[in-house]
Amino acid sequence: MFLKEYILNIYRAVASLLKGMKTTGRYFLRPREIITQQYPDNRAQMKLPERFRGEVVMSHDENNEHACTGCTACELACPNGTIKIITKFDVTPEGKKKKALDTFVYHLELCTMCNLCVEACPTSAIKMAQTFEHSVYDRSRLLKKLNQPGSKLRAGVE
């Protein structure tokens, strides 16, 4: 009785191992079902979804105009102090002083891509870009100015 149980145990053990090996062997023989991506080589074909959050960018149109009024809603919404908005005073044609954006400072090294700034922006001036390869040799290169030089506020955006 003891011997029968002993041999049965050995049989069950070997069977359980073979069952697992069968699954492994099946994939060994069908390499097409393996789904590894050859990442740095497939950059050209790789397409990230449009909602993917890689970094904050400010969109400019063909006249080098943006939609940022310098209201600092994004600066207040940011949990990490990633955004710093420096404003200046423009003189309108009527001779009035008007607050406008001077520099949109963006610290990529502090950003956690939480999307709260984009949600807070009342004029949809900033958005998230899909770029994600942010490695640089020096930390200071992660400090970015988002508005292009010479750009100005698009007419009609308040």
């Binding site: 993917f52 891509m113 939480c114 998230m128």
Partner: peptide, 12 residues
Amino acid sequence: MEETCGARLTMN
């Protein structure tokens, strides 16, 4: 998750 929430791990 990436498609709907915009991130793979820390979605917020």
